[in-house]
Amino acid sequence: MFTHYDWNAITANLAFLWDGMVLSLGLAALAIAGGMVGGMLMALLRLSSFKPFAIFAYLYVNLFRAVPLILVIFWFYFLVPVALGRPVGPFYSALIAFVLFETAYYCEIIRAGIQGIPRGQMAAALATGLSRWQAMRHIILPQALRNMTPVLVTQCVVLFQDTSLVYVVTLRDFMTSASIVASRDFKLVELYTFAALVYLVICLAGSSLARYLQHRTAMR
């Protein structure tokens, strides 16, 4: 079925595609790191007993979860240069968009994890004389993070898939590189099939890891 297709278009452009993959992975790694730190802070704000913090975090999370990622990417592609008064290129504006967007999603995962810890744990920690912050840091968060690891890994896989959306601001990630080669050499079938297979292999590996962690957590 695929015999009359020209798969050399892929091997001839492997270096170019690899550069795109490096950008995809780099963007995903930075967005995961930023999103997790931001999500952790946002979750603590969301659960804060100081109402203005909790309300701010509630509005932030629900605003970002109501709009499509593409719109957020457009927003910051437009906003960052206006705010800074100079062009910064698509990479940094896309990175800012991803970190702020993912913060909302990681926040909800981490919040659910923290709320999944029995109330008695907090009560016991406070009773032994720990401060609220110490209790969070030494008792609640370690348990919560271990329980939510599978969901966090799944979110990382989703985020990696979403990095392909930087296509809309023509940042040269793996997907954009594939589409550049596809339309330049007119090899749409070959390049897009190849891109799909590469994403499938990477994301299947990530999903399997999440499932493995899920089983391990469930057994404990």
Binding site: Q161, S164, T193, C203, S207
Partner: peptide, 18 residues
């Protein structure tokens, strides 16, 4: 597994171009 592990953008192009 197939549909969840390929980015939606890639799927869009697969249906449209491939």
């Amino acid at each position: 597994e197939l549909f969840r592990n390929i980015p939606l953008l890639v799927q869009m192009f697969l249906w449209f171009f491939v």
